[in-house]
Computed example of a mutant assay.
Amino acid sequence: MESQYKRLTDSQWEVVSQSLPIERKRVHSLRVIVDAIFYVLRVGCQWRNLPRESFPKWELVYYYFRKWQSDGTLESLNFSLNIKERARRGKEASPRLLSVDSQSVKVAPFVSEETGVDGNKKVNGRKRHVITDTLGLVWGVVVHSANKADGAMADRVVAPLRGYLHRMEKILADAAYEQMFMAWVGQNLLGVDVEISSKPPGTQGFVPVKWRWVTERAFGMFNFFRRLDKDHEKTPESAQSWVLWHNCQVILNRLT
């Protein structure tokens, strides 16, 4: 894990550029745009406080952030980087075993869209609902209000992966997913099982559960990126994008 923000190296940009439309000539290189997005992710500054001496106008950077969020470019970049990292670790491109879980986080002031209270964790805010493989790589994310049940929302995380992760055989989850999500998987994902695995009864605090602990580690790594210390985003869609940008930056640091 890098302890501070660093600009993209030549080898990192070569990897990123394979998923971006770099053919057309522009006033500002897309490399600088990606650098600016990673800067906001790591430092956590407001868009308007993006340093002008180092990056283009914040409006331009924000334009590309929203454009790549809406046209699928970010998802494509995240998907390709996941495959490269799995190949580097000697894994098949498509994982067989995945883990789904959620993290409840507080929201910043003036954030009101899609918020609620998680009565179990006593958090007023949103949930980051992610699905990871056994390496902790994020393959899907949905951000929603914290008062919505995990089991009722997990299908929104997994459904977009149908047709892409053809080797998927098992999804690990905790007891919150035992009813609604398990029933949805049985009806919609032929040949995929849901395995409920929770920490032993009577234990206190964090207890690592085999394979599911990597998802908890992914949540913990969010704390190293100031934009993710809580949910600062007006819309849940932007919050989802930052989780994917985080996964991309972590992989780029590992690849080089």
Score class of each variant (00 low, 15 high):
Phe38Arg: 04
Ser80Val: 00
Ser19Ile: 00
Leu244Ile: 02
Gln12Ile: 01
Thr132Ser: 13
Thr134Tyr: 09
Pro109Cys: 08
Thr132Cys: 14
Ile33Gln: 05
Ile37Lys: 08
His144Lys: 13
Trp139Ala: 10
Val192Trp: 08
Glu114Asn: 15
Lys170Ile: 11
Lys121Pro: 01
Leu74His: 01
Thr132Tyr: 03
Gly72Ala: 05
Gly205Met: 03
Val16Cys: 13
Leu30His: 14
Gln240Phe: 00
Val130Tyr: 04
Leu255Met: 01
Ala36Gln: 04
Met1Thr: 09
Val214Ile: 13
His28Leu: 03
Lys170His: 02
Pro21Asn: 13
Glu14Ala: 10
Pro56Ala: 08
Cys45Tyr: 06
Val143Pro: 07
Val61Lys: 01
Glu216Val: 12
Asp193Ser: 15
Leu165Tyr: 03
Glu2Arg: 12
Gln240Thr: 02
Pro236Asp: 11
Trp242Arg: 11
Lys199Trp: 12
Phe65Trp: 13
Met180Asp: 06
Phe110Ala: 07
Arg89Thr: 00
Glu53His: 09
Glu195Met: 04
His166Gln: 10
Val207Trp: 01
Pro56Asn: 11
Val209Gly: 12
Lys91Ile: 00
Ser99His: 12
Ile83Asp: 00
Met1Val: 05
Arg156His: 14
Tyr63Gly: 01
Arg167Pro: 01
Ser54Leu: 11
Lys170Met: 15
Lys170Asp: 06
Cys248Leu: 06
His246Met: 15
Trp213Phe: 15
Ala146Thr: 08
Pro200Val: 09
Thr235Asn: 03
Asp229Ala: 07
Thr132Arg: 05
Asp229Arg: 15
Val214Lys: 14
Lys122Ala: 11
Asp118Ala: 05
Val157Ser: 11
Ile33Leu: 02
Ile171Lys: 10
Phe222His: 15
Val111Pro: 04
Asp150Gln: 07
Lys6Arg: 14
Val111Arg: 06
Val214Met: 14
Gly202Met: 08
Pro21Thr: 11
Cys248Val: 10
Arg167Lys: 15
Asn247Pro: 00
Val143Glu: 08
Gln69Pro: 00
Ala146Val: 06
Leu252Pro: 04
Tyr164Val: 13
Val117Gly: 09
Leu228Lys: 12
